[in-house]
Nucleic acid binder design. Structure first.
Lengths: 101, 101
DNA sequence: GCCAAAGTTCGAAAAATATCGAACTATCGA
DNA sequence: TCGATAGTTCGATATTTTTCGAACTTTGGC
């Protein structure tokens, strides 16, 4: 993999996180990763072209919200739950529909 | 921006809040309103021209983060702390340096 | 009434983002 | 090795935001 630009937990910037989450598509992606666990890109693309989906995943990745790993021919995207929680405690809880406890 | 001038608490949209907070100047304004209480616009303007400051306060207002009232010839801006807390519990705590309690 | 102070609005220009097709890359399976 | 699948990258265009000066509004003081 060539472009792995993945900020370390301490490097995650609040402005970047907010910017990433200010787009409805990206916000929905984060919510689904949170509730459904890791997903391929195409599992979350709506009717968008691949290049647009790829762009949004990149924004999420560079903001530090998700991590991507290869699995065969697909790439699985996972929310960096612990890293985000450690850096900005409580933030994810505002974003994600609360699971019953 | 999606909302009219001063959204009611229930109308505050998370995307709008995130967008408003994704700008460093606006994030800093929110932090200062949180720690120092209500302020006039000019108390928070840096070296920016008035029209730019006014623009940023408008974004914050339309996102539902602040409320503005007239006081003589100045306008005082206050964080809508309770409204935000009610709508998105815990969000402000991520943004604002925690006061010692 | 006139003036100054504090913001707002307008309009144009600059900068940042988003969108989308086409070409490219990497991996798997036959 | 060939073909298909899943994404990425590139480049060009479109849309959205930001910036800033100038003109305007509102309020208070004289």
């Amino acid at each position: 993999m060539r472009h792995a630009r993945l900020p370390a937990s301490e490097e995650i910037a609040l402005e970047d996180v907010f910017h990433a989450l200010s787009d409805p598509f990206r916000l929905e992606v984060v919510r689904r990763l949170a509730t459904e666990g890791e997903q391929s890109c195409q599992a979350l693309e709506g009717d968008r072209p691949k290049s647009s989906v790829s762009h949004h995943f990149r924004v999420l990745r560079e903001a530090g919200l998700i991590r991507t790993r290869n699995e065969g021919v697909t790439r699985m995207n996972a929310l960096r739950r612990d890293d985000i929680e450690q850096r900005f405690p409580g933030l994810l809880a505002c974003v994600v529909p609360q699971p019953k406890e």
